[in-house]
Amino acid sequence: MTTSELSPELQNYIGRVSGFVEGPDEVNRAMIRHWCEMVEDANPLYTDEGYAAESEYGSVISPPAMLSTWVYPRWWPPVDMPADIGPTQLDLPLGDLPIPAVISWTEEYLLPVRPGDRIHYNTRLDSISTLKKTRLGVGHFITTTNYYYNQRDELVGTTQYVLYRYRLKE
């Protein structure tokens, strides 16, 4: 249900791209192994050096689904970054819509990511809905895409998020 037109100010943000954010660590075997422990993933490309050396990649690789983890902000020392990556990087003038809810997201994995790689990303605002009422409250549906690059500025993957930023109904 549409409750208003999109303000010209918000309309202006569509297509805007954030600055780049660099991941705190280079891609590394220890964090890859922790990820594999988390989901009990025995894929030898991730943790078996001998197998991976004989593979088409020539070394272990990062699990594709781990991509966004490489740019997750460090916890200490504190950094002036939002707690979640992506949509909030754009600093949209949304007013009093404090609650973010991820509705859906789609990841595409384009190139392998290896230990030693450095990943950085930026975020583009693809679209923003008018204010809509749902069973959760009142807010905007916001679609953004993260573009992840390696140290050679090759695009290694993307994530498109659909987020609902809302306030509870009064």
Binding site: P64, I103, S104, E108, Y109
Partner: peptide
């Protein structure tokens, strides 16, 4: 090779 993964919560 996983090329694309889309999730809805």
């Amino acid at each position: 090779k996983v090329r694309k993964l889309g999730l809805r919560l």
